[in-house]
Write a protein that binds this DNA or RNA. Structure first.
Length: 251
DNA sequence: CTTAATGTTCCCCA
DNA sequence: TTGGGGAACATTAA
């Protein structure tokens, strides 16, 4: 999202803004409008799942939640929750479920764990060793590691051959190292494929990603494991649908 | 009518 | 402080 968004937004001035959802923009929406109006966008970056938009004075953060979209020059519809009119073009926030957020400042993004593509092997192993939580919920915990969501955790655990209910601290060094490596591989490949578009996700130009074609576990319940042919099983872990191969992923 | 969905936070309890 | 379990938030689609 940031890779398609940044070229459109860098250097643009926000001429006006309006927000229409008390969920997406909690608190004083007029205050947010006043703070962004007239400002110039200096950079668009990512930290974990947050999109950070730095202005010539201050910054704001956008989280897409489950169904959020940021569209450049898109059409307004019933799910439009925010509009930024720029000196050239329009940035629109659409979100059917309204789980996403647009908030002033970067307070939330500062409480995140390390980036999965930046944390070193030894540090990753050391962090896992201190935690007695199940590995899947731990990887979804943004304060532990920033940016992995349900799809990429299931995909990573499948490639690492690790059961989602494994206790983090009890993973062998070899398996922890394998996990570190496959997380890097999954994310890198997914980014190359411009993300997973299951139902809603599109980039700033409205284009879908196609990494979902390469999913090996997520969404493949009942289909044969690509390694051993055993049907992929789906269970619930931490209230999230969890897909894994019962034969390849040992606890 | 029921369930589940790419997510996060809060509350209760151990 | 850690960790498990559940509810809540709001909408859509199967």
């Amino acid at each position: 999202m940031v890779r398609t968004l940044a070229p459109h937004l860098a250097g643009r001035r926000i001429v006006s803004a309006r927000f229409t959802s008390r969920f997406v923009t909690p608190g004083d929406r007029n205050k947010l409008v006043r703070r962004v109006t007239g400002r110039t966008i200096e950079s668009v970056r990512r930290r974990g799942k947050f999109i950070l938009i730095a202005l010539d004075r201050g910054a704001f953060a956008i989280h897409l939640g489950m169904t959020g979209k940021l569209l450049v020059d898109g059409n307004e519809n019933a799910h439009t929750r925010g509009v930024f009119v720029l000196d050239r073009g329009v940035l629109m926030y659409q979100d059917s479920r309204q789980f996403g957020r647009i908030e002033w400042g970067a307070a939330r993004a500062s409480r995140l764990g390390p980036e999965p593509l930046e944390i070193g092997l030894e540090e990753f192993i050391a962090c896992l060793r201190t935690r007695k939580a199940h590995v899947k919920p731990l990887l979804l915990n943004q304060a532990f590691l920033a940016g992995l969501g349900n799809i990429y955790v299931d995909e990573s655990l499948f490639l690492a051959g690790i059961h989602p209910l494994s206790t983090a601290s009890r993973l062998t060094r070899t398996r922890a190292a394998r996990l570190h490596q496959v997380i890097r591989e999954v994310l890198t490949l997914a980014i190359e494929h411009k993300g997973s578009s299951i139902s809603d996700y599109v980039d700033a130009d409205g284009n879908r990603g196609d990494f979902q074609i390469l999913h090996r576990a997520y969404g493949r319940e009942g289909e044969p494991c690509l390694h051993c042919g055993t049907p992929i099983r789906k269970i619930t872990v931490g209230q999230r649908g969890t897909h894994f191969c019962p034969k390849c992923q040992k606890r």
